[in-house]
Design a protein around this nucleic acid. Structure first.
Ligand SMILES: [Mn+2]
Ligand SMILES: [Mn+2]
Ligand SMILES: [Mn+2]
Ligand SMILES: [Mn+2]
Lengths: 217, 217
DNA sequence: ATTTATTTTTAGACAAAACTAAAAATAAAA
DNA sequence: TTTTATTTTTAGTTTTGTCTAAAAATAAAT
């Protein structure tokens, strides 16, 4: 088994390699892990020793097959716990991250199998992100950003890019929620702000909001 | 907040001080923690620095009020998670300990408050042990050992002293379960073995079994 | 009351995971 | 193509929690 720190690194590498064709940079990983570049180099060497990543000095780091598999299982656990917290313990979607960050490291195959069953095999977490199955497979939705919609178009809110508590609370406050239909009533050329309609109310949102909402048409 | 190791030590001290009027011995604590006496001394010094225990060299260790309070909250979490695993995730009572040992260290007040509510404020864990409330208060049952019953007496099984997987599986195999009535049909003077009746079946049990079952008359 | 045995503590070391400061490699600019 | 800037790695510490071996204190036995 792997340490809490190793698991967090693998998850961070998985996350960063999605937005980068080449290897994950030491500095980017340090930023993501809230640590120093030198610490990252040390850990990356260790992960490489254990064949969880492919690493050549100065060339960035890549997950190996086994590293990717491990990382996906952590993500699976993280997201299943998030569903549990929201569906069963009445947490709101902006409160779950910190706790799931801890729960994802509990070691027990039976626990996660049974939790999955108890939650009725959910496909997505409270933020709309897909939950990998026991094999690591998951379904990627063909979603687009709200900012890419034109005036008159509409779609369903299927996810959020920014999952910070601040952003999620902003959405709550304005009745913008997962599964709701969003209609673009108007788009301002000047600042790219949008007048949208959802949950019966209309509201003007800045581009900063629009680029953090995923829509399925 | 306290480290995983500090929390486990506090819990171990709480456990050991129940069966000892004087302070908890270094060696006993080392045995309980599966570590060496020298490691215990180091940790006990640290806990003493943090005012979680009262410690004088060579005189054994006692929990302080704050140490006891902290330890009871870990026990509370441990037992609530055990209830969750058995009641909601269909674990059996011999499978929960290892996982609860990990879950008890998750840091979140809301999590434990909501879990308690979700489980309908259980008073006892799957082994019959009392669950401390948020203030650390709990109800001690006036239970006695099965071995103390005489021929002809009966009572309800309210707890087990040995919570090892081996013992619990033995009980399962013989339909001896929490809440069941146990009747002492006969007691052999020679080896103190007992012929008991429970769940419609009669069965001869050794003293080793009888001293690990708690009865309420 | 000594001697012997047991328990407990100290001293020194180690592994994991972090840090700072400095060196080396790579990338960007002149 | 040098020079400069940025990124990454190395070297040397630190903290936490553990270990072994040896010393000191306490308890038990003669
Ligand atoms: Mn984590
Ligand atoms: Mn999520
Ligand atoms: Mn534990
Ligand atoms: Mn229990």
């Amino acid at each position: 088994m792997f340490s809490l720190s190793e698991e967090n690194y693998l998850k961070a590498i998985l996350h960063l390699q999605k937005t980068s064709k080449s290897g994950v940079n030491t500095n980017a990983l340090a930023e993501e892990m809230q640590t120093k570049a030198s610490s990252v180099t040390d850990m990356v060497k260790k992960l490489s020793e254990k064949n969880l990543v492919i690493y050549k000095k100065y060339q960035g780091v890549y997950l190996s097959d086994s590293g990717r598999k491990t990382a996906l299982q952590i993500v699976r656990k993280h997201r299943l716990w998030e569903v549990f917290l929201v569906d069963k313990l009445s947490f709101s979607w902006d409160e779950v991250h910190e706790v799931a960050e801890q729960l994802e490291h509990i070691k027990s195959d039976k626990l996660i199998t049974e939790l999955d069953k108890f939650l009725k095999y959910p496909k997505r977490d409270p933020h709309g992100d897909p939950i990998p199955d026991a094999k690591g497979d998951f379904h990627v939705a063909n979603k687009i950003l709200l900012s890419n919609l034109s005036k008159g178009e509409h779609g369903t809110l299927v996810g959020v890019k920014d999952t910070s508590s601040e952003f999620l609370k902003y959405l709550d406050k304005n009745s913008i929620a997962l599964g709701k239909t969003i209609q673009v009533l108007d788009k301002e050329e000047f600042d790219e702000s949008m007048l949208i309609q959802t949950d019966g109310k209309s509201l003007r949102v800045s581009p900063m909001v629009a680029v953090n909402i995923y829509i399925k048409q």
